[in-house]
């Protein structure tokens, strides 16, 4: 009897699900680029490191976002050697911690006055240091969902939706000349949905992934000779 009632309600819920599926996954992304001195022949056997800024009091650039950008670049051009961020920070401890990380390319000179630091940089053949600053946040959320449990009964009913925004800026430092050679920014936003008929079905907008692809494409275009 109750089972029939649920089936009766289903079309309304499935309508919401269909709408959510149609709307879900829609992500808007805007990319701005301003770069100089592009390495026309690529970066050869030199390497690149991508680092996140983590000195702000209210947010950290996510480690997995940095990894995503690095993977995107390496996938697009396997000849580009992208150094793992955590390995880099550990190898240069304590000079790239939030407290000590250089904020301007000119301050690299001071770091290079330390012989062990200079030696390690030379071993790495580092050509570009790319700093990513930004994060992804959830914005306004609406809807309601109720979950209940009883002997032999459990489930959730309702519908929720929330927005997600990603805003990142990449600053490219030419490590040879110790100058900034470009900035690329990506802003992405999208709406996620969660209809629930017994079981919640999350339909997540890939906002951060889109920002990663957008920023990664621009950086790949800058660094690679094949793009």
């Amino acid at each position: 009897m109750k089972r029939l009632r649920i089936v009766d309600l289903a079309p309304r819920w499935w309508g919401l699900v269909v709408i959510a599926l149609l709307l879900g996954g829609c992500v808007n992304a805007t990319v701005d680029e301003m770069t100089y001195n592009e390495p026309v022949a690529g970066i050869g056997e030199s390497s690149v490191v991508i680092l996140g800024r983590r000195h702000a009091p209210d947010y950290d650039t996510e480690f997995d976002f940095i990894e995503c950008i690095g993977d995107h670049i390496h996938r697009g051009d396997p000849s580009i050697d992208v150094i793992n961020e955590i390995a880099f920070i550990n190898q240069f401890y304590p000079w790239f911690e939030p407290r000590t990380a250089p904020m301007q390319p000119q301050t690299i000179h001071r770091l290079l006055q330390l012989p062990p630091v200079a030696e390690r940089f030379a071993e790495m053949q580092l050509e570009y240091m790319i700093w990513i600053d930004g994060n992804t946040i959830d914005t306004e959320s609406t809807g309601s969902m109720s979950c209940g449990i009883g002997p032999g009964v459990a489930g959730c009913f309702g519908f929720g939706t929330w927005g997600t925004e990603s805003e990142y800026e990449a600053t490219i430092w030419d490590f040879t000349d110790k100058v900034e050679v470009g900035r690329v920014s990506a802003v992405a936003s999208g709406q996620s949905y969660m209809p629930a008929v017994v079981v919640p079905i999350p339909i997540i907008a890939p906002v951060q992934g889109t920002a990663c692809d957008s920023l990664g494409d621009q950086l790949l275009e800058y660094l690679s000779a094949h793009h």
Partner: peptide, 11 residues
């Protein structure tokens, strides 16, 4: 009981 029945059908 109805929810559990529906879930039992699914799973």
């Amino acid at each position: 009981m109805g929810v559990a029945s529906l879930a039992s059908t699914i799973f």
